[in-house]
Design a protein around this nucleic acid. Structure first.
Length: 722
DNA sequence: ACAACTACTTAGAAAGGCTGAT
DNA sequence: ATCAGCCTTTCTAAGTAGTTGT
């Protein structure tokens, strides 16, 4: 909670903006509440309470220019907004009119065909038209949506700026929560009779239960998973559990099972799906949209918020990452009876599908999830939660970066501290200090201990084993080199050779003494000891804060270093990507090189070559035009020279762009930028950079990312310092 | 002190779908 | 109109870290 005191101080200069904004907003709120007058009394009470909370804050003198500038920007915005709203209303009226005309027309066609009387017709028409408008109103009421959201498919007229409101401080996550519950996986559709399964060369009809599990395997037949022993063993064991006694008796060897017809059938199905007509595709799209509108949103504290994963995971075969001991196991189908629903007491509770019951309905506002269920592979709990653009996720994200910024203020002290601790008499303190040094310097993850045999064998810092490191007194001209080679999260390999300080080197040497390769390097340390220590050094400090801090500070430094003010926009963006890349490398965010990488690189090179040819042609033409102009000395040839010059410049620029693109892509071959961008880089750094160099923020963040980082885009100025 | 449980963030792969070239 | 190639979205596994119970 203390975290926010800080951030609020920082926000002082935004405050006047907030106030003006709020008045405007209040009016809107009032209007909306009028519309929703029948919507839950208690809810309204909360809102009133909330409103009271927001009234505090004082006006402090501040930088005049900035103030003016902001005001101007805001006015522009508001002006645009009203224009937009008006336009929407106009369009709505037109739409209504068109709708009415259509109904009348349709009716008349029908009426004349049926020879109905005019009087009767008029009554009917009046009735029909009357129905157009009220219908909309009921819709608005129901969804608790600021109107315009549904009518206009584009952006709703004004996004809720939750970051300008006060937060809950008492561990309460919400006061009101209403949703429709999860969407369940569609029931199993048996395959047609002509798609057969063979056991030991003979056709065999499977019971629906066994057949369903067989199809899971058949769908994965092309994947190398299905060739792995553990996968096959786990699958077969779980499959047999679904078989009838007869099937069980007969099917005893997986290698005698022939799933090819099923596999071919599913491939044909997906092919057919691709070949569907536009109309059919549109229909599916519309249906998906309908489901999204119904189940994809919830109401949390008076605001409609997007849900991240409203669909319950369908049954299938578990696919772990890396060498997972449980790969191939059957992930069972989740039924309403497995599901716990969380919502507020005074909300309209979601209904379980007809004839079913929820496992439980609870009203716990100390948590953020809407739905949970137990998963059968690891025995863990799965949740349905909100989208990253939601208040509840955004606040937390913002808070995360504020904690990292607080670390920035005391990181020197902490670094000095752990350097001191390398000399400690106590082994546990030295281990702690060395581990922390690695976490800080190399951005390693904390490394919780894991239950053996339950998951793939991966490690983080605290769980490193002797076998994961090698020591070299000297390597490649550097002294005291530690070589790391281990599998980290998602079984991604971490390989790095780092020269370290002598003291660290000696310590590691000592930690490794008299140990087997499979022994823990830090035998006196675990994540909870480390985090407890960190907590003492700074409120809210944990191991992962170092990753966030180092990632963000690296981005900021790299941007300062790499951005060349004289370069054009694409070149600046390349610099941004390079800064981003430096972070991704630090955090070891890797990806499998795209399957089409070589090819796409080649086509790009072809394009570059073609562009080069084009450029030399253009240059030649320019030369001859110049020569021509020298001889002729008339207006026309002069103009021709100018035109050629322009053409050359244009082509030069295009070539530049392509070359930049090629460099960017090549450097990005095995590196994934997305993860750091989404989870480690304070978005305000990027936003500030964009503003400073007048780069449209869309060049850096796509639509989803802009939604997630709306708070940062709104509040960061060009001079923001992490 | 620790193990087990819970809640939430971080992660890469795969699927989906858009777009510009042909 | 089609299709490849790319970016976006979805999916859900795999982490971190706090809490609870023994």
């Amino acid at each position: 909670m203390l975290v926010f005191v800080d951030s609020y101080k920082h926000k002082d200069k935004h405050k006047d903006k907030e106030h003006r904004h709020k008045d405007h907003k209040k009016d809107k709120e009032r209007e909306r509440l009028k519309h929703n007058s029948d919507h839950r009394d208690s809810d309204k009470k909360h809102r009133d309470k909330e409103k009271l909370k927001h009234k505090d804050g004082s006006d402090k003198p501040r930088d005049k220019d900035k103030y003016k500038d902001k005001e101007r920007r805001k006015e522009e915005k508001v002006g645009k907004m009203t224009k937009w709203i008006k336009k929407q209303r106009r369009e709505d009226r037109r739409k209504t009119m068109r709708q009415a005309l259509k109904i009348v027309f349709t009716y008349f066609v029908y009426a004349s065909a049926c020879h109905l009387s005019l009087k009767f017709s008029i009554i009917i028409i009046i009735f029909l038209i009357k129905d157009i408008k009220p219908k909309k109103k009921t819709k608005d009421k129901k969804g608790d949506v600021p109107d315009g959201k549904k009518k206009a498919k584009k952006e709703p007229e004004e996004k809720w700026k939750w970051w300008e409101e006060e937060r809950y401080t008492d561990g309460v996550k919400w006061r009101f929560l209403e949703h429709k519950g999860p969407v369940f996986a569609p029931p199993y559709e048996p395959i047609p009779g002509n798609v057969r399964f063979y056991y030991d060369g003979k056709q065999m009809k499977l019971s629906p239960e066994a057949e369903e599990v067989a199809t899971f395997f058949a769908k994965m037949l092309d994947h190398e998973y299905t060739t792995k022993d553990i996968f096959r063993k786990n699958f077969f064991k779980d499959w047999r559990k679904e078989m009838t006694p007869e099937e069980k008796a007969k099917i005893t060897d997986l290698s005698k099972c022939n799933f090819t017809e099923m596999s071919v059938y599913f491939k044909a199905q997906s092919e057919a799906r691709k070949q569907m007509s536009k109309d059919e595709k549109l229909k599916i799209k519309e249906e998906n949209e309908r489901v999204l509108q119904e189940y994809g949103f919830c109401v949390m504290d008076n605001h409609k918020e997007r849900i991240a994963n409203f669909r319950i995971e369908p049954p299938g075969l578990f696919r772990g990452r890396g060498d997972h001991p449980k790969m191939g196991m059957l992930k069972r189908r989740i039924r309403p009876e497995d599901v716990i629903v969380n919502c507020s007491k005074d909300s309209k509770h979601p209904k379980p599908p007809p004839g079913t019951k929820w496992k439980e309905v609870r009203h716990d506002n100390k948590v953020t999830w809407l739905v949970s269920w137990n998963e059968n592979i690891q025995g863990s709990i799965k949740y349905i939660m909100l989208n990253p653009s939601s208040r509840i996720k955004g606040e937390k994200d913002w808070q995360k970066y504020e904690t990292a910024r607080r670390l920035k203020k005391c990181v020197d002290r902490i670094r000095n501290q752990y350097r001191e601790d390398w000399k400690s008499k106590e082994m546990r303190i030295r281990q702690r200090a060395v581990a922390l040094y690695f976490i800080d310097k190399l951005a390693l993850r904390a490394g919780n201990e894991k239950e053996e045999g339950e998951t793939a064998d991966t490690v983080g810092c605290c769980s490193l084993r002797v076998e994961h490191i090698n020591l070299y007194p000297e390597k490649d001209g550097q002294e005291f080199v530690v070589e790391f080679d281990f599998l980290g999260k998602d079984s991604i390999r971490y390989y790095n050779k780092v020269p370290v300080e002598k003291r660290v080197y000696k310590n590691v040497q000592l930690f490794m003494e008299n140990k087997q390769p499979e022994d823990d390097l830090f035998d006196r340390l675990n994540t909870s000891i480390l985090n407890k220590h960190l907590q003492e050094l700074m409120d809210g400090l944990t191991a992962k804060v170092f990753r966030t801090y180092n990632a963000s500070i690296t981005l900021q430094q790299q941007l300062k270093e790499l951005t060349n003010p004289d370069e054009n926009v694409p070149a600046k963006i390349l610099s941004y990507n390079r800064a981003n890349r430096a972070v991704a490398i630090l955090c070891n965010h890797q990806r499998a090189p795209p399957k089409t990488f070589e090819k796409s690189m080649q086509t790009l090179q072809t394009k570059i070559d073609a562009k080069k040819d084009q450029l030399s042609d253009a240059r030649r033409e320019l030369k001859s035009a110049k020569a021509d102009a020298k001889v002729r000395r008339d207006e026309k040839s002069k103009r021709a020279v100018e035109a050629k010059k322009k053409a050359v410049e244009r082509i030069e620029e295009q070539l530049m762009k392509l070359e930049v693109q090629a460099t960017d892509r090549e450097e990005n071959k095995q590196i994934a930028l997305g993860t750091s961008k989404l989870n480690y880089l304070d978005p305000r750094i990027s936003v500030a950079w964009c503003k400073k160099w007048e780069i449209p923020v869309e060049k850096i963040y796509n639509k989803t990312q802009r939604e997630k980082f709306a708070w940062a885009i709104d509040m960061a100025d060009d001079d923001y310092e992490f």
